[in-house]
């Protein structure tokens, strides 16, 4: 537990600022880790103009619509503290339903904490008034790529070129998901009929699957990405261990459905009838007959949730055995 307690200690310090958190906070008994490469100063944060404030249906949005646009002066005061050490991130919208973006917003106050302490949100067609994909540390890509749409193809290429880490956010970006079933004919671009998961066109670093991805997994991955890019050596080790399975998921490929459980788990004699797959399935395609999962494959939307939730698809004792410490670390990081 030593590692986590150390990291936790760092977060628990009151008034977390760059000095106590980031690269400048080595443990007293260890040499400072090599500095994280410099990157351009974060762009001005008047990125959320009031008229485009995010109003997510049926809920108080993370940023209240009636909140005044921060004036430049206010912004400046606010930005003085820890901002220079934030990572930059953005949301790239390919062919998805915006459910993934809603899932980000569903972190409610947590989203504000993330934006306040760790992340400068530099690009987001729905939330930020920036038209072109900028350089960023982390690009969260929602949706698959319509290969019949020139702009989408250009944008996904550009996303790869301009981002340090590309995260496939949600099952459409990871696996195609429901967009695999598209046959075209929809208004107002009926000829748009072929959609590919982003990993078929660019290298993807991290998978964050789910339809929609859970707000909690988004939170965990964001904190981990921050620690990876800005943390000290211990924090980077933690973040790397945590992200590793999601990186391996990205390497594994762009196809997923119930069949993956059959091929990689059940047929391999590994299934233990725990039920995690059935719990994870967003369309209730999985039932258990005499304890073993049965997939109604006609219902399956190819989201890959069952496969990734299964403890016998991949399981890291290193990480999961430390669940208590890791969850406390993330909770501490999210304290306002």
């Amino acid at each position: 537990m030593g590692l986590f307690e150390k990291i936790l200690g760092i977060f628990k310090k009151k008034d977390v600022t760059v000095e106590t958190r980031g690269t400048t906070a080595p443990k007293p008994d260890e040499p400072e880790k090599p500095a994280v490469p410099e990157r351009p100063a974060p762009p001005p944060t008047n990125a959320i103009p009031a008229e485009r404030a995010p109003v997510v249906e049926g809920q108080t949005s993370a940023i209240p619509p009636d909140e005044k646009v921060p004036t430049t002066a206010q912004t400046d005061t606010k930005e003085v503290k820890p901002v220079s050490d934030k990572i930059t991130a953005g949301h790239v919208h390919m062919s998805g339903c915006t459910g993934c973006e809603v899932a980000i917003a569903d972190n409610y106050a947590g989203l504000l904490t993330l934006l306040d302490k760790y992340v400068d949100w530099v690009y987001d067609l729905t939330l930020a008034d920036v038209r072109h994909i900028p350089e960023m540390d982390v690009a969260l890509v929602e949706g698959s790529v319509c290969i019949n749409d020139k702009i989408s193809v250009e944008e996904i290429r550009e996303t790869r070129e301009k981002s340090k880490i590309v995260v496939a956010l949600g099952s459409c970006a990871c696996y195609g998901n429901i967009t695999r079933f598209c046959r075209g004919g929809q208004q107002n671009q009926p000829q748009h009929e072929a959609y590919l998961p982003i990993g078929d066109l660019i290298k993807v670093d991290v998978y964050l699957p789910g339809c929609g991805p859970s707000p909690q997994l988004i939170k965990n991955v964001c904190v981990a990405a921050y620690l990876l890019l800005k943390g000290n050596a211990d924090q980077q080790a933690l973040a790397t261990a945590y992200l590793k399975p999601l990186m391996q998921a990205a390497e594994r490929g762009t196809e997923a459905c119930f069949c993956d459980l059959m091929i990689d788990v059940i047929d391999q004699g590994l299934c233990i009838g725990c039920g995690a797959c059935a719990a994870a399935c967003p369309v209730r395609a999985i039932t258990h007959e005499y304890g073993k999962p049965q997939g109604q494959r006609d219902l399956c939307i190819k989201c890959g949730a069952c496969y990734n939730q299964c403890p016998r698809s991949w399981f890291s004792f290193d990480v999961v055995s430390q669940y208590e410490g890791i969850m406390e670390t993330i909770d501490a990081a999210m304290q306002e």
């Binding site: 899932a103 699957p209 789910g210 339809c211 929609g212 991805p213 859970s214 707000p215 909690q216 997994l217 965990n220 945590y242 399975p245 999601l246 233990i272 725990c274 039920g275 995690a276 719990a279 994870a280 399935c281 967003p282 989201c303 890959g304 949730a305 069952c306 990734n308 939730q309 299964c310 403890p311 399981f315 990480v319 999961v320 669940y323 890791i326 969850m327």
Partner: peptide, 21 residues
């Protein structure tokens, strides 16, 4: 093994929205 599934699910809630807490 079911405890493993629960803890993996709390750390990596792929299809377990709002369950971890």
């Amino acid at each position: 093994c079911q405890m493993q599934a629960v803890r993996k699910g709390q750390l990596y809630p792929v299809g377990l929205r709002d369950v971890p807490d």
